[in-house]
Amino acid sequence: MKNIKITYWTLTIIFAALMILDGIGGVTQQQEGQAALRQLGYPIYLMCIIGTAKILGAMALVQNKFSTLKEWAFAGFAFNFIGASLSWAFSGGQVLLVLIPLVMLVFMALVYYFWKRFQETLL
């Protein structure tokens, strides 16, 4: 049971930190992100919207009071990763650019799995 708790919190903190860093990159409209959005055909202002959502989603993941909010954050990240992967695939992006969001989706699914296991230990 202790291993589940440690694994859950370790994976959650790593994932949340990655999403916060990515969100900050979006809010500050980093050049690499702008170039990617131009290549995909999306407006630059979308970076602020998605960046803010990622920061708020990461905050929702590290709290334990509102489980429904956490479920919605997981769903939002899943939609984001699937949408990013499909956007790169449909725009003719490199295979690596298509796969990176899918790898993050798998990592997020692992966090979700351990969150559910962690919840079982609390009952």
Rank of each mutant, 00 (worst) to 15 (best):
A75D: 03
L40Q: 03
Q94L: 13
P101C: 02
L46F: 09
G76T: 08
L69E: 12
L11I: 04
L86C: 03
L99Y: 02
L46R: 05
I13K: 02
L56Y: 06
L56I: 10
S87C: 13
A89D: 07
V95S: 08
F79Y: 12
F74A: 04
A75H: 07
A36L: 14
L61K: 07
L97P: 01
T52N: 09
R117L: 13
S67C: 12
I100P: 00
L69I: 15
L123G: 14
Q31T: 09
A16D: 02
V62F: 08
L102P: 01
A78V: 12
F114G: 03
I4W: 10
C48K: 15
G83M: 06
L69W: 15
A36N: 15
T12M: 09
Q63C: 14
E32C: 01
L110W: 06
A109Y: 01
M19S: 04
G57F: 08
L86K: 04
K65L: 14
E32A: 11
L69F: 10
G83D: 06
A53P: 08
V103W: 14
G51W: 07
A78E: 06
A78P: 04
I50W: 09
T7F: 13
M47T: 05
F90S: 09
L102K: 01
L69S: 15
L110I: 04
V95E: 11
A75S: 06
G76M: 13
F77A: 02
I100L: 02
I55K: 14
L56K: 04
M1E: 09
Q30H: 05
W9T: 06
V95I: 13
M108Q: 12
L56G: 11
W115G: 04
M19T: 00
K70D: 13
V103A: 11
N64G: 15
R38A: 12
S87E: 07
A35M: 11
T10W: 09
I55W: 12
Q94G: 11
L61I: 05
G26T: 00
